[in-house]
């Protein structure tokens, strides 16, 4: 099978994730959409690794996974901290700098 199809799939998933980040108002759902984008990036890296015939892409995808795990941990802690002080998980409520 042509492995380039995976690239198209990854591009689609990345776009869907980006739309979710823009459209959804719940901070946790926005976060999950970011995870979807990161996953699509990983699929691209793995496909590149197969196209070029070496494992560098897979190692970088592995690093991406670790960074994504860190990002989830810190991001969710921030969401919990905001929820604790503002009683809301909506990204529209955290707009103190605007007023």
């Amino acid at each position: 099978m042509d492995p380039y199809n995976y690239l198209y799939l990854a591009a689609l998933l990345f776009t869907i994730g980006a739309v979710g980040v823009v459209l959804r108002r719940n901070a946790i759902v926005v976060f999950m959409c970011i995870e979807l984008m990161l996953n699509a990036g990983n699929l691209t890296l793995v496909t590149f690794s197969r196209m070029n015939g070496n494992l560098n892409g897979q190692v970088i995808a592995f690093f991406t996974m670790v960074v994504a795990a860190c990002e989830v941990v810190v991001g969710l802690a921030i969401i919990v901290a905001i929820y604790r002080s503002r009683r809301s998980a909506s990204i529209d409520d955290a707009s103190l700098l605007k007023r």
Partner: peptide, 17 residues
């Protein structure tokens, strides 16, 4: 982790579209 945070935070976070 996401599901845990949803249990903590998600009660009133019914996402308004």
């Amino acid at each position: 982790l996401f599901l845990f945070i949803l249990m903590l935070v998600g009660v009133d976070s019914s996402d308004s579209l």
